[in-house]
Design a protein around this nucleic acid. Structure first.
Lengths: 252, 252
DNA sequence: CAGTGGTCTAGACCACACC
DNA sequence: GTGTGGTCTAGACCACTGT
């Protein structure tokens, strides 16, 4: 990137003080756009915090907050004494808490869902521990078959608190589970995941349209809300020949 | 948690202004310890930023920086108007950029490494693209067998720039690859990963001490330094019967 | 040595959650 | 309302990087 091009970019930056969007966020968005557009290429040095603050008539902490946000996202890197540089266009936020439904939607795969069963079950030891409820107490067990491009890709088994016993199949076949939870006011906070693999049972292979003894990816997930309560426990299998977990992660 | 216990905790908090450790970090560490100790349990309300600032004679932005750090780590959650609460003791940072060697070390599994081969190879199209170098140019190809508790658990295949052609087997059998890179001044920044599964070939099953056609986890990883350059590309397989990827992730 | 990011202060006003 | 976190300012000094 030439100095002239950098100048152009700086001139293009602006903040709207009457907007309800925070100033730091406006700046971060514009820088990120420039990076994704290719107007700022990997390795390019970005103006210093003080310089940007002067140009945009912001305080340095505000500019810094924008930078912090982008560093956290992994798109820029700062080195004391050396400046701030664009890292890479293709580093994404470290593995967001998203559902398979949303993932497939984003990649344009037209997901569809079939509810195989929805029953009330006594919690096994494993489920009870995961949901932090007494063993043998009642839980909602939900089994869904998720397909993409009209081919089955995953069998999703979820255990939910009895508060969600009123979920309907229609609802579940129309929206992702997380989407439904959010619509009900649940604030998802974090999840613990375990990803493994094993060979499919005969029934599983048939269900997922895979050959006998094909490898399947397994994933178990416990989702928490922001009060620390368990929202959901799931144990899922994915057709390994057609599904992968892709994500970026940042250095500690 | 009782109000008295909370008071005790607050009295226990302190900052050492002569320490080279940043004040915000000292505070964050103490709060995190209290959470991990169980002195602060999930759901407990933490003092407000203003109150903590007053007690510790810090400015509010400094206290806030400590809170930000813990929110980012996922151990506390803030809600405007509602206060700050401890979320959970077992949410960890979203999947750190660490090596299998370090992971095994941490879980007390005594990893050992055997270098199966280390050669200079012409880059295939896949490797060239991953390393951002021309096709057919030279790269260092490294194949290692990683064992835990005296049983093989993964075959690791890495491609490195020719700068690392002087790595020795002795070095590689003693330390993790990331450890070696860091010692050479490489600053790891982020990685893109793809986790999948397939059935093992006969040779792979034998190498990993698994039964024929067992499922193996596959992982491909491209690691970047903080200038946006590619440090390493790896394509690995793991014995699925004895290895899982475990991690936490935070809501976007 | 000069320049850069890292940390810190002492205030301020606002939007939202909860009572 | 009242209290909380969310945002913002205008400075300051220090530690590290690269020349």
């Amino acid at each position: 990137m030439t100095a002239a091009a950098e100048d152009d970019l700086v001139r293009a930056l602006h903040v709207d003080r009457s907007s309800p969007i925070p100033l730091y966020f406006q700046l971060a968005q514009q820088l990120e756009e420039a990076i994704n557009d290719g107007r700022l290429t990997p390795g390019t040095r970005i103006d210093t915090e003080v310089e940007l603050a002067r140009q945009l008539r912001l305080s340095r902490p505000t500019v810094r907050q924008a930078m912090d946000y982008l560093v956290d996202k992994g798109v820029i890197a700062r080195r004391r004494g050396a400046g701030t540089r664009v890292v890479s266009a293709d580093v994404r936020r470290p593995l967001e808490l998203s559902s398979l439904h949303d993932d497939l939607l984003r990649s344009g795969q037209r997901p569809s869902t079939q509810v195989l069963s929805m029953t009330v079950e006594a919690a096994t030891a494993e489920v009870a521990q995961a949901l932090q409820i007494p063993e043998h107490s009642e839980t909602v067990m939900l089994v869904r078959l998720r397909s993409a491009m009209h081919r089955p890709i995953a069998r999703l088994t979820n255990y939910l608190p009895m508060t969600f016993a009123d979920l309907t199949s229609a609802e579940l076949e129309q929206h992702g589970l997380y989407e439904i939870l959010r619509a009900r006011g649940v604030r998802l906070h974090s999840a613990n995941q375990v990803i493994g693999a094993r060979t499919a049972t005969t029934a599983e292979a048939k269900l997922l349209d895979e050959r006998r003894s094909a490898a399947v990816l397994t994933m178990q997930r416990t989702t928490l809300d922001d009060h620390g309560g368990v929202v959901e426990f799931g144990t899922h299998i994915y057709a390994a020949s057609r599904y992968r977990f892709e994500f970026s992660l940042l250095s500690p």
